[in-house]
Design a protein around this nucleic acid. Structure first.
Length: 282
DNA sequence: ATATCTGCCTGCTCGC
DNA sequence: TGCGAGCAGGCAGATA
C-alpha cells in the first residue's frame, strides 16, 4: 500500500521528469477513478496545462498546474508509471484507469487493479487536503506537538496514528513498524503516554519513515515507483507481515491481531500494555 | 468524542 | 483440478 515513503518516492520521480511539461491529452478508462469534477471537466481542465511543481501531501501526489491542481491518491493498488511513449515496443499494461500524454511524448499511466485510487482536479487545494493533519516529517512537528495531538484525544494508538486528520501519511505498515520501534502497544490509550514515551514515538516515526524513504519504499506486492521498479524497505520490516517470526529485538514471536479492524503486528514482549492506564510524566 | 460497521474492488490463498 | 469463501485494507459515510 503506498504510504508516505512510497508516495514521496513517486512524487520525486515525477518531479524530475514532469516539471515544465505540457499536458496534451487526458484519457479516462474507468470514470469512477475521477473523484472530482466530472470526467469531461477533468479532461478539459487538464489539456493544455503545464506542470509547474510536484510534491507530496500526506498520501496524495500533488501536481501544481499553471491553473489548478491535479491530486492523486493511490489507495491500495494504484501505480503511476512513466513511459517515454506508449507506441510500439512498450509492454502492454493491464489495469490502466487513466492516462496523461505530454508534449514531449512522455506518458503517465494511472494503473490500479482494485480501482480504489482517485484522481482530483481542483482550483483550491484545501478542498481535498484541507482536512489532513500534520506532516510526520515536518520540522514543525516536534515531540511537544506530537504529544499535544495524542494527549488531546483518548484513543487507541494504532487507530489514532492511522487517522489522516491527525497525522497525514502513515498507513498500516508504518504504524506497526513505528509502534514496534517505540516499544508501544497498539491498544495503548493516547492520553496515557509519558513524556519519555512521546519522545520515543516521535523518534520512531522520524527514523522509520526516513529509512523507508531512503529505501525507496516497501514492496510487498503491488507498489512500484514511476519506473515500475520495486522498493527495498520490505527487507527492513521488523514486524509487518512477520507473524510467527522472531522479534529482531528480543526474539519473541511476533503476533498478529485485529485492532480497529486492521491486521496489526507487534511484539508481545517489547510492546506491553500497562495493566491500568498511566498518567503524567513517568 | 470514540468505536464499529458497510461499501467500494479484485487477486490471491485456503479448504474441500 | 476446480470452486466458493474469506481475506487484504484506505477512506468515506453511516450508525451506535
Amino acid at each position: 500500500m503506498p504510504e508516505l515513503p512510497e508516495v514521496e518516492t513517486i512524487a520525486a520521480g515525477l518531479r524530475r521528469r514532469l516539471e515544465g511539461e505540457q499536458i496534451v491529452a487526458a484519457e479516462v478508462y474507468w470514470p469512477r477513478s475521477v473523484a472530482v469534477p466530472s470526467v469531461a471537466e477533468f479532461v478539459s481542465a487538464l489539456v493544455g496545462r503545464h506542470v509547474r511543481e510536484v510534491w507530496r501531501r500526506g498520501k496524495f501526489v500533488v501536481l501544481a498546474l499553471d491553473a489548478g491542481y491535479l491530486l492523486i491518491h493511490l489507495r491500495m493498488t494504484g501505480r503511476l508509471l512513466l513511459h517515454a511513449s506508449d507506441e510500439s515496443g512498450q509492454p502492454w499494461e493491464p489495469y490502466v484507469r487513466a492516462r496523461l500524454r505530454f508534449a514531449s511524448g512522455l506518458v503517465l499511466s494511472f494503473v490500479d487493479v482494485r480501482k480504489f485510487g482517485r484522481l482530483y482536479v481542483v482550483n483550491d487545494l484545501d478542498e481535498i487536503v484541507g482536512s489532513l493533519g500534520a506532516e510526520p516529517l515536518s520540522a514543525s512537528l516536534g515531540p511537544r506537538e506530537l504529544g499535544n495531538l495524542l494527549r488531546s484525544r483518548r484513543r487507541q494508538l494504532k487507530p489514532l496514528l492511522l487517522d489522516q486528520r491527525v497525522l497525514a501519511g502513515l498507513g498500516n505498515i508504518y504504524v506497526d513498524e513505528t509502534l514496534w520501534a517505540a516499544g508501544l502497544h497498539p491498544l495503548r490509550r493516547s492520553d496515557t503516554l509519558s513524556d519519555q514515551e512521546i519522545e520515543r514515538l516521535h523518534r520512531a516515526i522520524q527514523e522509520v519513515l526516513r529509512q523507508a524513504v531512503r529505501n525507496q519504499g516497501t514492496t510487498l506486492r503491488d507498489y512500484r515507483n514511476v519506473a515500475d521498479q520495486v522498493g527495498e524497505h520490505q527487507a527492513a520490516l521488523a514486524v509487518y507481515g512477520r507473524a510467527g517470526e522472531p522479534c529482531p529485538r528480543c526474539g519473541c514471536a511476533i503476533v498478529r491481531e485485529l485492532v480497529g479492524g486492521r491486521g496489526t503486528h507487534y511484539c508481545p514482549h517489547c510492546q506491553r500494555l500497562p495493566p491500568f492506564p498511566k498518567r503524567g510524566s513517568g
